[in-house]
C-alpha cells in the first residue's frame, strides 16, 4: 500500500512540476527579455539570465506613451464593467433559475447563441450604431460594450449558482417579511459570494484583455487601454520587443495579484456552479 502511494506521489510531483515549467516559462522569458537592454535582445547565443540588467524598457514605456493613464483606464473599465455585468447577470440569472415562464428556453437560447457570433460580423454595424447614439470615444461606452459582452456568460454562470442554492433559503426570509429583492441581497448573495467573486474575475480578465472594441471605439489618448497601447508598439517597421515585454509584465501583474488573492474563490466559486454551470 505504502509503495503504491509513493508511485502516485512521484507521478504527481513530476507531472505538476513539468506542467508548472510549461506554464510559467513564457512569463519568465518575457520577464527576462524586459530586463535586457535593446542591443542584447537579439544577440546570439541566447542568455537565460540577462548579462546586464536594466529597467530602461520600463522607464521607456512611460516615456513613449502615457502608460500610467492606460493602467488606470483599464482598471476602472474592467472593474466597472465586471461589476455591472455581475449585477445584471445576477438578476437575469436569478429569474432564470427560480421561475418557470413562457419563453424561458428561448431566452436561454438567445444568450447561448451570442457565444457563437464572431465579433467582426457585427463590428461595422455596431460602429454605426454607436456613432448614431453619440457613444463613440468615451470610456463609459466601452464599459457599456464590455458589460453587454459579458452578460450572457455571466447570466448562465449565475443561473447555475442559484440552482444549487435551495430556494427554501429565501422563502424563509420572505416569510420573515423581506421582499424578494431584499432576500436576494441579504440572504442569498452572501452564500454565493465565492461564486460571485469567480464570475467577477472572469469578467474582469476578459475586459482587461479586450482589444478590438477598444481600438474601434476609443480615439483619444486619455481613454486608451493597455491592450491598445501595447498594440501600438508594433509599428510599420519595428516591433519594440523591449517595450512590449515590459508592458506585458506590467499588464499581467494586476491579474496575477487578483488570482493570488482570489484563486481560492475561483475554484470554490466554480464549485458552486460546477454541475449546472
Amino acid at each position: 500500500m505504502g509503495r503504491q502511494i509513493n508511485w502516485r506521489l512521484l507521478f504527481k510531483v513530476i507531472f505538476l512540476s513539468l506542467f508548472l515549467v510549461f506554464t510559467v516559462f513564457p512569463l519568465y522569458w518575457i520577464f527576462i527579455t524586459s530586463l535586457k537592454p535593446g542591443k542584447d535582445m537579439f544577440t546570439f547565443p541566447i542568455h537565460y539570465w540577462p548579462e546586464t540588467i536594466t529597467f530602461d524598457n520600463y522607464i521607456n514605456i512611460f516615456k513613449i506613451s502615457s502608460f500610467n493613464i492606460y493602467i488606470v483606464n483599464s482598471l476602472i473599465l474592467s472593474i466597472v464593467a465586471g461589476f455591472f455585468s455581475l449585477i445584471i447577470a445576477l438578476l437575469s440569472g436569478y429569474v432564470l433559475a427560480r421561475f418557470e415562464f413562457k419563453g424561458k428556453t428561448q431566452v436561454i437560447f438567445a444568450f447561448f447563441i451570442t457565444q457563437m457570433i464572431p465579433i467582426f460580423i457585427g463590428l461595422a454595424p455596431l460602429y454605426l450604431l454607436m456613432s448614431k447614439l453619440q457613444l463613440l470615444n468615451k470610456l463609459p461606452s466601452l464599459m457599456l460594450m464590455y458589460t453587454v459582452m459579458m452578460i450572457p456568460f455571466c447570466t448562465v454562470i449565475m443561473k447555475g449558482f442559484f440552482e444549487r442554492i435551495p430556494s427554501s433559503l429565501e422563502e424563509a426570509a420572505m416569510i420573515d417579511g423581506c421582499s424578494r429583492i431584499t432576500a436576494l441581497f441579504k440572504v442569498i448573495i452572501p452564500v454565493m459570494l465565492p461564486g460571485i467573486a469567480a464570475t467577477f474575475i472572469f469578467a474582469f480578465v476578459q475586459c482587461w484583455n479586450e482589444l478590438f472594441l477598444a481600438i474601434m471605439f476609443i480615439d483619444k489618448e486619455e481613454a486608451k487601454t493597455i491592450p491598445v497601447a501595447m498594440n501600438s508598439f508594433i509599428t510599420k517597421f519595428d516591433i519594440d520587443w523591449g517595450a512590449m515585454s515590459a508592458a506585458t509584465v506590467l499588464s499581467v501583474i494586476p491579474t496575477l495579484i487578483l488570482f493570488a488573492f482570489a484563486q481560492k474563490y475561483i475554484v470554490e466559486g466554480m464549485t458552486q456552479g460546477s454541475v449546472k454551470g
Partner: peptide, 21 residues
C-alpha cells in the same frame, strides 16, 4: 429582472448581428 440583460443584448449584440447578416 430580465429587461436589462435582454435589452442590452438585443440592442448591442443582436441588432448589429442582424445588420451584419
Amino acid at each position: 429582472c430580465l429587461l436589462p440583460a435582454l435589452l442590452l443584448v438585443t440592442v448591442f449584440i443582436y441588432y448589429p448581428l442582424f445588420k451584419g447578416v
